[in-house]
Amino acid sequence: MRTVLIAAMAYALASIAPATALARPTIEELKARRVLDDYESNVVYGYNIVMETQRYAPRYTGNRLRCTSCHLNAGTQPDAFPLNVAGIYPKWRAKNGVRNGIGLRIRDCFLYSLNGVMPPEEAPEVLAVAAYIHYLSEGEVIGRTPDHWGVPTLPDTNVEPNPARGGEVFQRNCAACHGKDGAGTGPFPPLWGPDSYSAGAGFNSIPKTAGFIWANMPPGGPRLTHQQANDVAAFLNLQLRPFDPREGKLKKLFERIVHALSAAWAGDKP
């Protein structure tokens, strides 16, 4: 009964807000509202996590990447791993060999791409990101892969990817934002080193990275050729980055401790 009342109040307040053509309110509209229901507040929270992962989900984040570093424009940009994918989960994934719900998929991102700690199944951060993904997926057909899902697969160029040439392309086209040492500058994410994605991340595969680079990088500038994108991807794949968390034998733990100590030595937060 109470929840009905709250919902009614929220609805009444929502109907005062100017009507828009979209059935779903934008994030800005949600943020401007005085009263949000549980779902809407989770959507906003999820959006905040996607945009500022270090600030809103520091507990499980292990590097300086944000969700939106790969899922560009808060997961709304096509061909850049858009997040309107609620309709295709649960599905089987080769990565872990089990049926993955959207929750497990998000937790995997924290573990591999954010090189952090795998959040528990019922962690509020995971549920909030799931709510945001659900919100983005409005209008999609359940079970059908959305258009421009993931990244495009590049055609075979019949030439092996060449990391050395890729390095040159990187220094010429990418280093201005991502830094000569790949450590990132300002809002541009680090591409390798201890603060980037781990060796177990989905991004650590040449075809995926090449597709992402070709479709989205450099933003606003002229596209690289397919071959250049392949070369840069091969170059990135060779760089040092955190270990794959699936590797045990105290390797990952040791790396974490070294990383934490060096960060403490440098005087900033781990």
Partner: peptide
């Protein structure tokens, strides 16, 4: 540490 966080399925507290 020995089995890795994926195989051991042990949740950690986090930062």
């Amino acid at each position: 540490g020995w089995r890795g966080p994926v195989d051991s399925q042990i949740e950690l507290l986090g930062h």
